[in-house]
Simulated assay, not measured.
Amino acid sequence: MDIIEIFKALIIGIVEGVTEWLPISSTGHMILVDEFLKLNMSDAFKEMFFVVIQLGAIMAVVVIYWKKIFPFSFKQKQFIKKDTILLWVKIVIACIPAGIVGILFNDKMDELFYNYQTVTITLILYGILFIIIEKWNKGRTCKVNDISELTYQTALIIGLFQVLSLIPGTSRSGVTILGAILIGTSRTVAAEFTFFLAMPVMFGASIIKILKFGFAFTSLELLVLLTGMIVAFVVSILAIKFLVGYIKKHDFKVFGWYRIALGIIVILYFTIFK
């Protein structure tokens, strides 16, 4: 029944909205969710859906950080906000490495790495790294405490870390936050810059998937896609606000332990039931 598929899209939208921004791997969760829900659509549609649903999540960043990312001002004497333009230059620089690798090797990487074995390894590996790096980082003085202090070189290094997120289960937000912390960026700045990086990366990935799928949507496909995107948007707003508030008082170790636990669940599920 159509209503069942729409309900599944709603659940997937909730999962996407939460896991896209928390450093716990949206892909790992999507694999588990799809195992249980079994969205009754074509494989081509599902491949596109699980990527394009992220457009809803992107809009949450746009809404929350509109004043910081919109480069024009109609109230001040200077129409163009110089600081915002410089921020966008840094965002573009940071997105170049993942953009190049993604365009050249997207299909090959999906073929090689989009499986539960890879997701399990990356979930657990980066979970351990979160715990180790947070312990190592305790007591260190951060070099970058405001996003305006990010240099072009720092932005590029964070962008290089983002390339690792092309491997499923890594978590784009997780690996960029880890990378930013390693080079002396505060958790708050690392998380915020990660949110900004998501905009061009997710938009670009979504465009590629839509063009590959085509625009001949059935009414049900369109409704399922819109439901997932809208729900992901609403939930993403809550998830982003939660994460920003959380990291002001806590570190990321809890997410590391969660990743390890999820990785174990994934491997046990596929080993026992598959």
Rank of each mutant, 00 (worst) to 15 (best):
Asn115Leu: 06
Val101Ala: 12
Lys108Val: 10
Thr118Lys: 09
Glu111Arg: 14
Tyr114Phe: 15
Asn115Asp: 10
Cys95Ala: 15
Asp110Trp: 00
Thr120Glu: 09
Lys138Asp: 10
Lys108Ile: 12
Thr122Leu: 14
Ile96Trp: 06
Gly99Gln: 04
Gly102Ala: 09
Glu134Pro: 02
Leu112Glu: 10
Leu104Lys: 13
Gln117Tyr: 14
Gly102Asn: 01
Thr120Cys: 08
Ile100His: 10
Ile132Pro: 00
Phe105Lys: 12
Leu125His: 08
Cys95Lys: 05
Tyr126Ile: 01
Gly127Asp: 03
Met109Gln: 09
Leu123Ala: 03
Thr120Asp: 07
Gly127Thr: 00
Met109Lys: 00
Leu129His: 04
Phe113Trp: 08
Tyr114Val: 02
Gly139Val: 06
Ile128Ala: 07
Asp107Lys: 15
Leu123Trp: 05
Ile133Glu: 03
Trp136His: 11
Phe113Ile: 03
Ile124Cys: 09
Asn137Val: 03
Ile124Arg: 00
Tyr126Ser: 04
Gly102Pro: 04
Gly102Cys: 08
Gly102Asp: 06
Pro97Phe: 09
Ile100Lys: 05
Asp107Thr: 13
Leu125Cys: 11
Leu112Asn: 12
Asn115His: 06
Ala98Ile: 11
Gly102Trp: 08
Asn137Arg: 14
Tyr114Gly: 01
Thr118Asp: 10
Val92Gly: 02
Thr118Gln: 02
Thr122Glu: 07
Asn137Glu: 10
Cys95Val: 13
Ile124Trp: 01
Arg140Pro: 04
Ala94Tyr: 01
Gly102Phe: 09
Asn106Arg: 15
Glu134Val: 02
Lys135Glu: 11
Leu123His: 05
Ile96Ser: 07
Leu123Phe: 15
Phe113Asp: 05
Phe130Gln: 04
Arg140Lys: 14
Gly99Pro: 03
Tyr116Lys: 04
Ile96Gly: 08
Gln117Pro: 02
Phe113Gln: 06
Leu123Val: 01
Asp110Ile: 12
Ile128Glu: 05
Leu112Arg: 11
Phe105Tyr: 15
Thr141Trp: 02
Phe105Val: 01
Ile124Pro: 01
Ile96Thr: 06
Thr122Gln: 09
Cys95Asn: 12
Asn106Asp: 13
Ala98Arg: 01
Leu125Ile: 08
Pro97Tyr: 04
Asp110Phe: 11
Asn106Met: 08
Gln117Gly: 06
Leu129Val: 14
Ile93Gly: 07
Ile93Pro: 03
Leu129Gln: 05
Ile124Leu: 04
Asn106Trp: 14
Asn106Glu: 13
Ile91Asn: 07
Ile100Cys: 10
Phe105Ser: 11
Gly127Phe: 01
Ile124Lys: 03
Val119Ser: 09
Lys138Glu: 15
Gln117Val: 13
Leu129Pro: 00
Leu123Thr: 03
Gly99Asn: 07
Thr141Gln: 14
Asp110Glu: 15
Lys108Asn: 13
Cys95Pro: 02
Phe130Tyr: 02
